[in-house]
Nucleic acid binder design. Structure first.
Lengths: 403, 403
DNA sequence: TTTTTACTAAATCTAATTGATTTAATACTA
DNA sequence: TAGTATTAAATCAATTAGATTTAGTAAAAA
């Protein structure tokens, strides 16, 4: 174990990132305002923004006239200053995106699967890499890395986690094949193919990271991200950073028990798209394939019923989160259809207000829609390279020690 | 909201603290070894240790001969280099200590009460301050501050939290009196009386902080501190720091529901000294007043039964902690009699091993005995002044902004 | 005596601060 | 309306703090 000291170079990098963060949150800032906000001197800001401009990470928008004195120069993020590549491997699909520095999606690929194979994932990845190289040309060097987001336990609960594709019967064989995703072979392969660093997180942490980088003008520092996909999970944001625990498995909300067990013993079986699909099937209603179908009264009513039942199922677990983490807010995101999410939030709010002994924090939707995870994957390299993280200052040097 | 930049002065303070931490954990280190461990240059270490020696925070132990080359100088913490004053207000007693820089208790006071009044607390505090000033003389200036540790909800559960003193009948009047402890009036008063900064935390966080500063040669970075006193609580240590949540209430383990409700609805009623006392009373066994009495077979057997029942009660809550927080270890400490603690740990280990779906982390006792809280209170000012905290670098400057 | 190790002094480098200066706009005034 | 004052933004130049590099010295074992 090493407790690293801090040098001026690390401070500089940190200060650069603090400035980038400010400019990202409020485009069009003047150097003077940045100086105020950071507590650094105007001269320092002048030097650092000069460097950021030179490196193309920041651009000049224009000048603000109308006030006394010299007009201030408005600085903004240069959208084309950096890119992040992201791949999300989920139980029912593999998707990939290229994200620019401002979080805008430049390229996007997706393929439906019933539990992903190594081969399908590699095909998607190769297609993405080829597309990106063709699109960016010499700007390829601005790609900061590849992010990979996948569920923590791809090879578990195969029978209860429904996917759309043809029913597989050879569950044991499938499970064996899926253990591929327990290794880090795919990360290594990605890194090799691209020549770029590869960052891996579980889907919940990836989604929460995108919330941190792009979520709000004044992001919350303490929240719990409740992530709903084919299964579900969670991520704890503490002091403005995702906390991943001693073994990278923190926030495993899905592994808490449900209140009644009606929708499955574990929350990941109850609060999930699988659960909702089973619920539709159990009530003989076809799964909507077009957005408008969600508005149908029968559909609305069924969704409402499901939301209320599930809210009740997860209430004790959410109460535990509130008692243990004392969050400012609970943010719900993931891959639920955008028309279902508000109903779920309503139901959870109502249920918690009735049952909780502790004050209930804000409960609201994540900023990103169903694309949150894939986007989150692409955010990982950008976050790693440009967000002001604690590690930067505390554990930056990584020299090995004498024996 | 302010995102502060980082300057070289902050780096220096941080590096000083990193060095102090190393020297605290492994007394007798050479400058060269410190340089290796921190990744800083030998010269930097020379300068900083020079300053620490001059300020009396570090002392020279001797020289190591026997190896080739010039013998290395052994540096250690100067025990008399700094002091911390601590007061613990609990439901059944008020206690206070003066701690030296190495964590050794210099002075200690205690008074039994049945729920503490403002007046009793002030008496104890004044006595402590007088004693300390008499003892330290001109070294009074080395006292870094006053720490106050108290339960989060002093005025709740009055009926179920047993104390030793005479039964109070006027519960409503008592409760009104106890709301004093919800304010920060006592902190302000302490600060005024001593002219020193006052640091307040709840008892669980204070105990965990002492574990962080004095707990181990190579302290764990991720653990859950389960704190058992008249009631119980918890504290989450993440990345080597106590996490206190958005409103300072994180880790409220006691507010999670029990499995069966047999020992009370909330964990703080079941896993607590109160619960154990009620259990003894319910089985017509007198509460041991001498340490040896705990060894009596009848007593042992009763304690064992209680431990097993309580372990079962808290098992779901501990599983939630493991799933949500993914800790390296669960550390149990607080004010349980030292003979009861190992039995409780055994019971919890056994119960979790049987019930948990996730791998069970290490479960072990805290380093500090029943004095953990009071000690923890006294640690707060030392921790604040000398531990390398994240805040130091990230939020050090606190200038106010223009409107 | 040679080699090795521990440590330090002086010079250098990086980055932030301070104070003066330049630039460009609005506000005031004759 | 022209000219001057005022204000604000930004930069230049000099200074300061702190870490690193380089070149030593001191002390002990081989």
């Amino acid at each position: 174990m090493k407790s690293s000291g801090s040098t001026s170079e690390q401070s500089r990098i940190y200060n650069e990132r603090i400035i980038l963060q400010l400019v990202r949150q409020k485009p069009g800032l003047s150097r003077g305002y940045i100086a105020q906000q950071t507590g650094l001197s105007a001269q320092t800001i002048s030097v650092i923004t000069g460097s950021l401009l030179e490196r193309g990470l920041v651009k000049v928008d224009g000048k603000v006239r109308g006030r006394r004195g010299q007009p201030s120069v408005q600085l903004s993020l240069n959208h084309q200053g950096a890119y992040g590549l992201g791949i999300n491997v989920d139980r029912d699909r593999i998707s990939a995106v290229l994200l620019d520095f401002s979080g805008h999606c430049v390229l996007s690929l997706e393929k439906q699967v019933s539990f992903p194979t190594e081969q399908t994932a590699k095909e998607i990845a190769l297609a993405l890499i080829a597309d990106v190289k063709a699109r960016l040309q010499e700007d390829w060097v601005k790609v900061q890395g590849v992010g990979l987001a996948k569920p923590d336990y791809m090879d578990a609960w195969l029978d209860s986690l429904v996917t759309d594709a043809v029913q597989r019967t050879d569950l044991e064989g499938l499970q064996a094949e899926l253990t591929y995703w327990q290794s880090d072979a795919f990360e290594s392969w990605l890194s090799e193919q691209t020549g770029l660093p590869c960052y891996k997180e579980n889907d919940a942490i990836a989604a929460a990271t995108s919330e941190l980088l792009f979520g709000a003008k004044t992001p919350r520092k303490h929240f719990f991200y409740l992530f709903v996909s084919i299964a579900c999970g969670g991520s704890i944001v503490a002091d403005g950073e995702c906390y991943s625990g001693a073994h990278g498995k923190a926030g495993s909300f899905g592994l808490l028990p449900t209140a009644t067990g009606k929708h499955g013993r574990w929350i990941l079986e109850a609060l999930s798209i699988s659960s909702l699909k089973r619920f539709f099937a159990g009530h003989d209603l076809p799964w909507p394939t077009v957005a408008a179908q969600w508005q149908h009264p029968k559909c609305q009513q069924l969704v409402d019923q499901w939301c209320q039942e599930v809210a009740f199922e997860i209430q004790p677990a959410l109460s535990a989160v509130i008692a243990l983490y004392d969050p400012e807010a609970i943010v719900i995101g993931g891959r639920l259809p955008s028309s279902v999410l508000p109903q779920l939030i309503d139901a959870v709010q109502t249920c918690l207000a009735q049952q909780s002994v502790l004050p209930v924090p804000d409960i609201g939707p994540a900023y990103a829609d169903e694309t949150a995870v894939t986007l989150g994957a692409a955010v990982l390299p950008l976050y790693e390279t440009f967000a002001p993280q604690r590690e930067l200052l505390l554990l930056a040097s990584s020299q090995t020690l004498k024996p």
